[in-house]
């Protein structure tokens, strides 16, 4: 299984050059006070998700599922490796941001260099976890051509969704239900909320993985 994850990293060696450029761009474009708290999360999420998409796109382009499934490896393992690779790509994304950030700092660029904070980690895990949990089953069910259209929608939803929800909550600020929910959340300690979120995301990933395994077991190549 480890071998399958390494394979995904190896096939997209070239993408890593892109991630370096991308993270440099992020540092310059978003080194403003507004993004100060989220810049590492933003960079990491984009890098990790793009690498995950590229890995599946290369599988699809080369039709290499045929080779993988001709090797002595269980279909379940192929899927499990893909899901485990989510965490690998998050680490890769964070590492890229940290290394590039440090390099820029040492070069004397005016950027804000710090360690990724806990809230960012949770945000990264949540975003990538949920994106992949939706993306993988659809990719394995419908193939890469159809999943492209879906990806556009998913991105749009992620971009505009939170803003719209926030707007809705502002408009209906007096709504009793929302006020009470916010009130309750405010009263829970932060570590509890965070671990709750992490637990929920991990559960979503697990369920998604089980669904994808079922899809993949029946798949024809």
């Amino acid at each position: 299984m480890l071998n399958l994850i390494l394979k995904d990293l190896l096939v997209q060696k070239k993408s890593f050059i892109f991630t370096v450029f991308y993270s440099t761009f992020v540092f310059f474009a978003f080194s403003t006070p507004v993004f100060e708290q989220t810049i590492y999360a933003m960079g990491t999420i984009a890098i990790a998700y793009i690498l995950i998409l590229t890995a599946t796109a290369l599988d699809d382009k080369n039709r290499s599922e045929i080779i993988l499934n001709s090797l002595p490896v269980k279909r379940d393992s192929i899927i499990m490796a893909k899901y485990l690779s989510i965490f690998v790509y998050i680490v890769v994304g964070i590492a890229t941001m940290m290394v590039v950030g440090l390099a820029l700092k040492l070069l004397g660029m005016p950027i804000n260099y710090r360690l990724v904070n806990g809230a960012e980690l949770v945000a990264i895990l949540m975003s990538i976890g949920i994106l992949c949990s939706i993306y993988f089953p659809i990719y394995y069910k419908f193939g890469s051509a159809n999943v492209r259209i879906f990806n556009i929608f998913l991105f749009l939803a992620l971009f505009f969704g939170p803003v719209n929800i926030a707007n809705y909550m502002k408009k209906n600020g007096n709504n009793e239900f929302i006020t009470s929910v916010l009130e309750t959340i405010r009263n829970i300690p932060e570590w509890m909320i965070m671990s709750g979120v992490v637990a929920i995301v991990l559960a979503i990933i697990l369920v998604s993985m089980l669904i994808t395994i079922r899809i993949y077991r029946k798949k024809e190549f």
């Binding site: 071998n3 390494l6 394979k7 190896l10 096939v11 997209q12 060696k13 070239k14 290369l58 382009k61 080369n62 039709r63 290499s64 045929i66 080779i67 001709s70 090797l71 002595p72 490896v73």
Partner: peptide, 26 residues
């Protein structure tokens, strides 16, 4: 041992790299 009529190996890799991926399975 299988040989298919079309190539399904990863275009992006060299022969040695592709071997490195396949070998550990056997």
């Amino acid at each position: 041992g299988f040989v298919y009529d079309e190539n399904h190996f990863y275009d992006e890799l060299s022969i040695t790299e592709m071997k490195g991926i396949i070998a550990p399975f056997y």
